[in-house]
């Protein structure tokens, strides 16, 4: 959104202008739910379960850090831990998919080779 005072472009949910500190929207009223910082815990558990060990474990560590830092009021730290949790989920997921595809390719290759030798 544009600041009505100085015209600077601000982030859509910024509540103060980054340039002139003009208040762009009212601070959230008491009682409204606070920002939810995703901890990616369920994704981390899925990655741990579906054979991407030990790469799902760091994702769970970062998930725990997200909630720890939220409780401590360290929102910047929680956001960083959230990013790391997400990154490790993707690494674990990618590794799992890649190893499964390699395994599948090898198996299909072996089956086709056997099929050929039976034919002769």
């Amino acid at each position: 959104m544009y600041c009505p005072k100085c015209g600077t472009t601000n982030d859509g949910n910024a509540w103060k202008c980054i340039q002139c500190q003009e208040v762009l929207q009212q601070a959230p009223a008491a009682g409204t739910p606070p920002e939810v910082i995703p901890n990616y815990l369920w994704q981390a558990i899925v990655c741990t379960a579906c054979c991407c060990i030990p790469l799902g474990i760091p994702a769970i560590v970062y998930a725990a850090q997200v909630n720890t830092k939220v409780v401590q009021g360290d929102i910047a730290g929680a956001r960083q831990a959230s990013k790391n949790a997400k990154m490790w989920c993707w690494i674990a997921f990618g590794t799992g998919i890649a190893s499964s595809l390699v395994w599948l390719a090898i198996n299909i290759g072996v089956m086709m080779t056997n099929h050929h030798s039976f034919g002769r």
Binding site: T48, A49, C51, I53, W103
Partner: peptide
């Protein structure tokens, strides 16, 4: 059945991982 991929950790180390058996 043959087409569900096995656990790479178990394949390489012979030990179970925490997710083994989930499928």
């Amino acid at each position: 059945t043959w087409f569900f991929p096995p656990c790479p950790f178990r394949e390489f180390t012979g030990y179970l991982c925490p997710g083994c058996g989930t499928l």
